[in-house]
Nucleic acid binder design. Structure first.
Lengths: 128, 128
DNA sequence: TAGCCAGGGTCACCATTCGTGACCAGGCAC
DNA sequence: GTGCCTGGTCACGAATGGTGACCCTGGCTA
């Protein structure tokens, strides 16, 4: 892909697949939400579950495992009763915070436009 | 979420779901690849298919339909034989180019780190 | 003493989506 | 006539996303 110096050149063949793989990691909606939330600081499992409205326990577990595997978050277990597990961004995770936040800002800013486009598309499809 | 002025405040409850929905649109790997490719200019269906190595016709069609529906790309049909269909970013799509490119750059830059983290995680898991 | 809750998971099971390969139309070259 | 090119669509299996139930252990309440 060779991004970085203005225009992109055509070097997809090998990078493309790898980059896509990494983007798919970030791409899933839950990962983004977890990262944004952890951007504020360490959180416990149940804090995250409450903060990320709509996520199920299983999905949160899976998402966190994936992020841990990729070195984006750390998982600290306190073997108390009831158990307590803290999650936090690693340094690598924090570097991701910036581009991800950029996307989130974009999403918020352009939400109305997208909604309008969808409605227009819907109308065009039904009238057809 | 109230991103935008430095620190985030706790306003997830209503925004969160909507933002997540929009992110999931951008989040899927194919959409990102299409947007990045169209950032260079108008492309035909089969150009895209060739450029985005690994995508199937069906997935490309679905992805493009989704992006068109959300007002991010335009679809122009030339009823020639053989048929010809051009795709291009809308103005809205171009505004998305910047944050998405940011992500792509991040992915490329940190790919080795992630790979290393994965290998370390793998080793930790197998030795356990 | 029986119930019930919290916290962090896992498991079985369904629904949705992903992805592959086949097929289509219509004219052109061989 | 056979096959190819383009931009799709359709049917079908594979993978993934998501839900609700259950687990464990200790403390609190009734």
């Amino acid at each position: 892909m060779s991004l970085g110096n203005g225009k992109m050149t055509r070097r997809y063949d090998d990078d493309c697949v790898a980059t896509r793989e990494i983007l798919s990691l970030v791409g899933d909606k839950w990962s983004v939400m977890v990262i944004v939330n952890l951007g504020e600081g360490t959180m416990r499992f149940s804090d995250l579950k409450r903060a990320i409205e709509g996520i199920s326990q299983r999905m949160l577990t899976l998402t966190l495992r994936g992020l841990e595997r990729d070195g984006l978050v750390t998982r600290t277990v306190f073997p108390t009763i009831p158990p307590r597990v803290d999650y936090a961004l690693t340094r690598l995770g924090q570097t991701l915070l910036e581009p991800v936040t950029g996307l989130a800002v974009w999403a918020q800013r352009h939400r109305p436009e997208i909604q309008r486009a969808r409605e227009a598309f819907q109308r065009a499809a039904t009238s057809k």
